[in-house]
Nucleic acid binder design. Structure first.
Lengths: 354, 354
DNA sequence: AAAATGATTGTAAGCGTTTACATCAGTTAT
DNA sequence: ATAACTGATGTAAACGCTTACAATCATTTT
């Protein structure tokens, strides 16, 4: 059947349809100024010979790659965070809708020191970049920004810069979940487990917590952690317990550290949520599986990814004005770790179902 | 500083070094037959003007994209499985080592019906494809295979075909974990929760279980599930309980369904592992956090991804002979859900840490 | 009837590489 | 001294598209 698996080109269509390559190109790109009969004939031939455009050739001619880059951080030996999975899903969809594909890469700390390590990427592979997460170095981001490659930040923001970003309303999120602990469960002595103070989302989340605390004239107590992993959440909770033995609740900057906190409290002989409430932020898929099921703030990661990609494509294709910041809302997910009664159980949308 | 952000080309190097583009190309590709002085001068100029090759142009000339595709299945509304994360990590690394990048995409059921839906990918975007997981349709894979695009399967195998694959030793894995239940915990009445019977890994895993059961002259009891999610594991376990009220243990085809099984047993008033043992396969990151911590079989996913990518690159670059099958070993991870005592706790390498 | 307009199509020059082939200057062999 | 080789380099044609510009022809306008 496929004796000569030689790919048909624009040229071939042109010959068989008896027109020039220019016309074929116009038809294939839906450009105006082609007679309807010609158009349909070209389309027919294209279909008949199974034509597929060469993205490479098109790329060379138009100075594009039709690829979007998704860059995020990886800390050895931790695995890549599943946090990104939903984001990628959104990015992938938006990309498809515009005929783009997504190249994903995971940079380590050392990869960020010199941009030229990253040059294959930066210079040639993609039309633009989505940079996700708080752990990417500012100097790294700035370098990219200065290179004039279109970039959009996701769940991060560099203040004072005309740099596009999509984030969620971190402040409102922690404010509402902290308020929930205060109002629904009558708790007051709450501490906040924060990520590094210069991380954008940590900072905003802390502010939401502080705001809620001040409303009841309670002094905010913040623990800054070097990272926001479960292990660190565990360790930091032990510290917190020493300083505040009468702790009533922990507001964690993310779910991972919240889960660590719960472990630490349990190991310390405390009951969660009876003795101490714990809440997180992120709504990881394991949340409902934990005992107690984790109360948390959901961020719409899929949507964030989608919007970030959309934005990036706008910049690339329409050279849209830069410096947009899109802030998405959040949703309070009440489960048990705050002290609420168990609800009818939700289906398990775990992300490891194969 | 960057007044004219115009990318230097081969041409520019050639002019400044006073040689032809052919020579520059030879130098840049480490080809022999260039005088040492010329070579170093070219290199110097290239560095000085900050030259970076255009992968697109090179691609057009060499008929390559220097991109690898990673394709896997996504079932709405389930999120993308974190199962892939470790695999991707391995792929990414191997790709980098060969100057390639990885384009990831998630196909849905309907995307697989017609290969031309997938054509952008198939024909132009990548030099080869890694197809992961058991849920990709055989017709889809066959279509790709027949298109002469280099592909390698991961955690899947199409028998009777000269198609490259990297898999793990599923049989040995379930055999050893089933034997563990039998020998260490003296259990006999064990059922197997299987994925669809035509899924490669499910089939092999079932065989390992059956082998162990036959060794003790016990009739294997297999439940075929339509998928291997936690929800389905939950439901199927309820069914199993009806048929076999005196069940002593469940060997699940993967961790997700094992976790669902544990839930179902608990909801049924049974204690795991005291009344019923449960074991999984995969070693997902949630395993150690579950109560009881999950006993399972570890597959070296990172390594599998790495090897698959390596293989693919070999095929692409050296047109290595086709039809290799690489089978990696597994590792028994003993935790509590089989009935073993709690060990000193491992660090939490969750995959949701920030 | 000449000129202007507009719609359709073609021509050909890129885009930045690679590479088959040609060239040229030294060597070495005759 | 000529022929034959070698090693280093250059020439120019691809690769498969896009697109500025030119050309053609049928209508309209004057």
């Amino acid at each position: 059947m496929t004796v000569t698996p030689v790919k048909p080109t624009l040229q071939d269509i042109a010959e068989q349809a008896g027109v020039s390559t220019a016309t074929v190109s116009r038809v294939l790109n839906d450009r105006p100024g082609v007679n309807d009969d010609t158009r349909s004939e070209v389309l027919r031939v294209a279909k008949e010979i199974g034509y597929v455009p060469s993205i490479t050739a098109r790329g060379l001619a138009t100075d594009r790659t039709y690829n979007l880059g998704f860059v995020t951080y990886k800390r050895d030996p931790q695995p890549i965070s599943s946090y990104h999975l939903n984001i990628i899903e959104g990015i992938d969809q938006a990309a498809r809708e515009s005929g783009c594909h997504v190249i994903t890469t995971y940079v380590k700390r050392e990869d960020m020191t010199d941009l030229s390590n990253f040059s294959m990427f930066r210079e040639q592979r993609v039309d633009g970049l989505i940079l996700a997460g708080p752990a990417l170095k500012t100097s790294f981001i700035m370098g990219l920004y200065n290179s004039h490659l279109p970039i959009v930040l996701l769940d991060n923001l560099l203040s004072g810069l005309e740099i596009d970003a999509v984030v969620c309303d971190n402040r409102a999120g922690t404010y509402s979940i902290t308020s929930h602990l205060i109002e629904a469960h009558n708790l007051r002595r709450l501490v906040f487990l924060s990520g590094p103070s210069h991380w954008f989302s940590s900072k905003e989340r802390r502010e939401g917590y502080e705001h809620a605390m001040r409303e009841i004239d309670q002094k905010p107590e913040v623990f800054y952690m070097p990272d926001t992993t479960m292990n660190t959440g565990y360790d930091t909770t032990r510290d917190a317990l020493k300083l505040f033995p009468d702790l009533e609740g922990i507001v964690a900057v993310n779910d991972a550290s919240a889960l660590g906190a719960i472990r630490a409290l349990k190991d310390h002989g405390l009951d969660v949520p009876h003795d101490t409430a714990v809440v997180g932020f992120d709504n990881v898929t394991w949340g409902p599986l934990n005992e107690p099921a984790l109360t948390t703030v959901r961020m719409f990661k899929r949507e964030m990814g989608f919007q970030a990609a959309r934005r990036l494509i706008d910049i690339i294709e329409r050279s849209a004005p830069r410096g947009f910041q899109l802030r998405l809302g959040t949703e309070l997910i009440i489960r048990e770790s705050c002290g609420c009664p168990r609800e009818a159980s939700e289906p398990f949308y775990t992300d490891f179902g194969s």
